[in-house]
Design a protein around this nucleic acid. Structure first.
Lengths: 270, 270
DNA sequence: TTGCTCAACTTGTTGGTACAAGCTGATGCA
DNA sequence: TGCATCAGCTTGTACCAACAAGTTGAGCAA
């Protein structure tokens, strides 16, 4: 029916690579060198099938590799599109600066400063602390806590989700724990209203592939990892909040400044 | 030959999900709840094919989803194995502490302290600075630079690669730029020998899917993202080195401490 | 016992087919 | 003109078949 042997013979070391990888490599090269620019559509499967002299299944395997790598995305009826990725940089050591508390929401400020349009939805609820959060807040897993969940967009593109847990002892300090509006304005402001000062953060950064739920919220297909940022905030006595932010990995980068940066470092590399 | 219609009819809203997703979801659930523990082998494709009453191709599509999510890996002749992921935590704000320069290689120290066995290979060469690095070192792209490339293992598992670029002006300060051995011992020590002190860092963190080359070096299959850590070190005058570390995303996590952490925070959540 | 071969498993690759389902523009009716 | 329909494109899902190639263990030969 088909014979692989004869073909491999004359391939002369240039590629023992299987055909579907050759397809992926060729297309990846063309995406890299700009033959297919971000936003552009790739030729259809049947066209590629003809070009590479491969079956539709084989071409699909190759395209699937590129989807997995996050280079392209597909939609039924439309075709394959080259993904664009303008990254948004978050300076985590300056963010919510300890000395200069932001007047308002730090996220909105940052996005607006970058000339882009922020948009976010809130949800505040009473819940129990999951184990991961409880460890960090130094409470028992299952203890009640207040969760402030936040879904953020930049120019109407889903950007990140943020879940902040406050321990029970903290929210009962305030007179109005049943009013979600208090927390909605932002963590720093809320804590200030309770007379609590954050004096330090413990940040943890990890990456992994999104869960199906995350993929849905952030509208990312297979092949785009998420960047997980867990920030535990401390008062002079104990942890006062734990914020887990889930970023689209292809659209975000984080920065930290440590120690002194020389004078000329003001204009950081973009 | 086969008819999808009849089956969908009686599925009763419980799942409009395509069959290959049902396979993936079922297996994912069983991996999560421990039916298949890390390191365990999944049933073979043909067994799963019988269990789910699906063709081998359909089962493969489902398994491929889990590979993409990084939950399992496959090897020809062996089968599918549930991946284990013990994460290794790197405290980036304490790492190469500015006040207390490490006596020796910081990586080896950290890994040994965690009760695991470090192993690394070096390569030092004279090269030109790629654009990304040149921007950070404030030199022209294409300028000569010294590259120290480092391939690191923990318990013989590939862990990370590290590429440190030093600008030309710096290496010519030392009398012996042709001796690769000097840099091999580590950045901090090398800089000290040149009488240069690092007073600050600029760290950038990003994530993405690995390039084929990275996947080869780190021995990660599709579905495992990499964590990119770029550290630019500064003297009191200017950037003196740029280190790009590529971690396996499934095995590493980074920490930063900012400001003051309360007394009880010494025992950080693992 | 040792060591080799080989059968019988495993996944990997590639081809084929058929139909479902989403999108778009042309066509034609009101 | 306006709108509904539909043909013809696209990708998505599902099946089948065949052979390549890696791994393992049984079993035979030295």
């Amino acid at each position: 029916m088909y014979q692989q042997v004869a073909r491999v013979r004359h391939d002369e070391g240039m590629s023992k690579q299987p055909k579907y990888r050759q397809v992926a490599d060729a297309l990846r090269r063309e995406i890299d060198n700009g033959t297919y620019a971000p936003g552009a559509r790739l030729p259809s499967e049947s066209e590629l099938s003809a070009r590479f002299d491969a079956s539709r299944n084989t071409v699909r395997s190759g395209l699937n590799l590129l989807v997995t790598e996050g280079l392209i995305s597909s939609s039924q009826g439309l075709g394959y599109e080259v993904r664009s990725h303008e990254v948004f940089v978050l300076n985590a050591s300056r963010f919510e600066n300890l000395d200069l508390p932001q007047n308002g929401d730090a996220y909105s400020t940052d996005v607006t400063a970058a000339g882009r349009r922020p948009h976010q939805t809130f949800r505040v609820e009473l819940t129990t602390a999951p184990e991961y959060v409880a460890e960090r807040l130094k409470v028992e897993a299952g203890d009640t806590a207040v969760l402030r969940f936040c879904h953020r967009f930049v120019d109407d593109v889903p950007w990140s989700t943020q879940a902040t847990h406050y321990p029970e002892w903290l929210v009962t300090k305030g007179p109005r724990l049943t009013e979600p509006g208090d927390i909605a304005e932002g963590t720093t402001r809320y804590l200030a209203s309770l007379g609590i000062e954050q004096i330090g953060y413990f940040d943890e950064i990890a990456t992994r592939m999104p869960t199906p739920e995350e993929a849905r919220l952030l509208e990312i297909g297979a092949g785009v990892p998420v960047l997980l940022w867990t920030r535990t905030g401390f008062s002079d006595e104990r942890p006062i909040r734990c914020t887990i932010t889930t970023f689209r990995g292809d659209l975000n980068r984080m920065n930290y400044e440590i120690g002194e940066l020389s004078a000329r470092s003001e204009n950081e590399p973009q």
